[in-house]
């Protein structure tokens, strides 16, 4: 594929769309610009919807090939077949009964997906405890401040903290409202500056990550 199709056309589309979005955002309210921005953002929603379909197709391809390669008898093939079965089940129920707003879809979702997700989340909590035990060591001033602030704020977030020691409430609130807000706002501003630089580099076709993706493909 030529460099024009791989790199120049995507950059041109990105630049034109970005210029309209940026101008609309910073300019005084304008009906025409608003209309154009509305169209562009709704197209982005449609494109994002197609990426879900693409994701499903990649999932089928990945697990389908694994089943063919490993066989249904193997452990990997068995788990891949379960994944594909669940995918087919959800898509079939969604299509057969009229989308994700139906009680049938709700029923299988709340009894399959939700418990699995909750258990995964619950397991993370246990890993956090184990990780905190092994990693939170008072090795430096930075680690100590992180540990003390984390523990005090966590205790403020549960009723037993203030019930046992009432000053924990104002200490936790102070940590959240002052050191945290100062650091987070600094982070937000720094991220915004970084985003502006990356955006400008993309518009000028100088951003390496975009170029590398084009080259790989």
């Amino acid at each position: 594929m030529s460099i024009t199709i791989k790199s120049l056309i995507p950059t041109l589309i990105t630049t034109i769309v970005a210029i309209f979005i940026i101008v609309e955002y910073f300019a005084p309210p304008n009906a025409i610009l608003g209309e154009i921005k509305g169209s562009f953002t709704s197209w982005a929603v449609i494109i994002a919807s197609f990426t879900i379909i693409l994701g499903a197709l990649y999932l089928v391809r990945f697990h389908g090939l694994k089943i063919i390669k490993e066989g249904l008898g193997s452990q990997e093939g068995f788990f891949s077949s379960i994944t594909l079965f669940i995918l087919v089940l959800f898509v079939s129920v969604g299509l057969a009964f009229g989308g994700t707003g139906t009680s049938q879809y709700n029923l299988i979702y709340m009894n399959i997906m939700k418990p699995i997700a909750s258990i995964t989340r619950g397991i993370c909590f246990f890993y956090c405890i184990s990780a905190a035990y092994r990693a939170f060591k008072l090795e430096s001033w930075e680690a100590t401040s992180m540990l003390v602030a984390g523990v005090l704020y966590s205790l403020r977030q549960i009723p037993i903290g203030p019930a046992v020691w009432s000053p924990i409430e104002s200490i936790g609130d102070w940590i959240l409202a002052y050191p945290n807000v100062g650091a987070t706002r600094g982070g937000i501003v720094a991220t915004a500056f970084g985003s502006i630089i990356i955006a400008l580099r993309t518009l000028y076709n100088k951003e390496l990550s975009v170029k590398l993706v084009s080259e790989v493909e």
Binding site: K37, T41, S42, A44, V45, I47, A48, S49
Partner: peptide, 14 residues
């Protein structure tokens, strides 16, 4: 409405 922030912007705009 997939698309993250774009969907949020789209809903706000139109």
């Amino acid at each position: 409405a997939p698309g993250g922030e774009t969907a949020t912007a789209s809903f706000a705009t139109d």
